[in-house]
């Protein structure tokens, strides 16, 4: 069974309200997004800023409630009361701001257990030590404060903190974007290693296709609140179908090839006023008149693409 199923989920935020608190301008951050994540896999959502990828993570984490659609966790619909559940945990981009500067490392790792009143002091301390071993940190760090740690160490603490409640689903929102290249590799390796030792599913939110390529099983590409294409990592990275996916891939600066021209013209339109029909049509090199109508969802061999170009495929 899939651990996570997202069905036609939409989320709108009020941007401006009138005197009576009714929204007069709304931002459709996520529109009718559907995907499912098999247990034990790594599912990546990739997109530029404003694509809605972080909103999806926040919806799954229960930080926001969806405006429409439903989210199922192990087949059970997500309820408001589930916000504090232990089986979904999150690791954020910047450990500088996700850790409390005034609390010791021991407290921050232990906090989840304390909130739930789990175990006595000795058991908790044992769990904390086990987590430190898991993320490769020494016990000498326990009485220290976040400012005494390097960026990589802080992100390890954030991972230990999220894993102490033994979650089944870990949401990784740009977990290495704030880190240096040499440290990024250490953290990615650690995450891969941890997944080998326990049944854990990752939902990875990132803008970096190189990380997606190395690290995930399935990928969904988002543009202006919609999934434009999804499939296995080799579907998406090695033979992309959607013109936007192709543009994203060709924009990745790779030492192996020299870019010769602009990958795509123009800029991402405002999410407050996205183009009708296919949202990418204003920048698409292959756009035609038919793109002013909503693109069909084309399913072919386990992959899915929303594009008129591929409406003939089955």
């Amino acid at each position: 069974m899939d651990i996570l199923e997202v069905r036609n989920v939409g989320k709108t935020f009020p941007v401006r309200k009138n005197l009576f608190g009714r929204p007069t301008l709304e931002l459709h951050a996520v529109r009718s997004v559907s995907f499912s994540v098999p247990r034990g896999s790594v599912f990546s959502i990739v997109g530029e800023s404003g694509s809605g990828k972080s909103t999806v993570a926040n919806l799954v984490a229960g930080v926001h409630r969806p405006t429409s659609g439903e989210i199922l966790l192990s087949g059970e619909p997500l309820k408001e009361s589930d916000r504090r559940r232990a089986c979904v945990q999150m690791v954020f981009q910047d450990p500088e701001s996700s850790l409390d500067p005034r609390k010791t490392i021991r407290f921050q790792i232990e906090e989840g257990l304390l909130i739930r009143g789990m175990g006595n002091a000795r058991e908790r301390s044992g769990r904390v030590s086990a987590m430190l071993d898991l993320v490769g940190l020494g016990r000498d760090l326990l009485p220290k404060y976040p400012h005494e740690l390097s960026g990589g160490q802080k992100q390890r603490v954030a991972i230990a903190r999220s894993l102490i409640l033994e979650p089944q689903l870990l949401l990784l929102d740009e977990p290495t974007s704030a880190l240096d290249v040499s440290v990024q590799a250490q953290i990615l390796n650690l995450l891969m290693e941890i997944r080998g030792t326990r049944t854990l599913t990752y939902l990875l939110i990132t803008h970096d296709l190189k990380i997606v390529s190395c690290f995930s099983d399935r990928v969904a590409v988002m543009y202006l609140g919609r999934i434009v294409e999804s499939g296995t990592v080799s579907d998406i990275v090695d033979s992309p179908l959607h013109p936007y996916t192709r543009a994203l891939l060709s924009a990745v600066p790779d030492p192996g090839r020299r870019m010769t021209s602009d990958p795509v013209r123009g800029e991402i339109p405002s999410p407050l006023d996205p183009p009708g029909g296919c949202a990418f049509r204003t920048r698409c090199p292959d756009a035609s008149d038919v793109c002013e109508t909503p693109p069909p969802r084309v399913l072919a061999g386990g992959r899915e693409v929303s594009c008129h170009l591929h409406s003939g495929r089955t």
């Binding site: 190189k210 390529s213 190395c214 990275v237 891939l249």
Partner: peptide, 10 residues
């Protein structure tokens, strides 16, 4: 240490 798009080391 940099990840790549290539399929070889996926």
């Amino acid at each position: 240490s940099i990840p790549t798009l290539g399929a070889e080391r996926r």
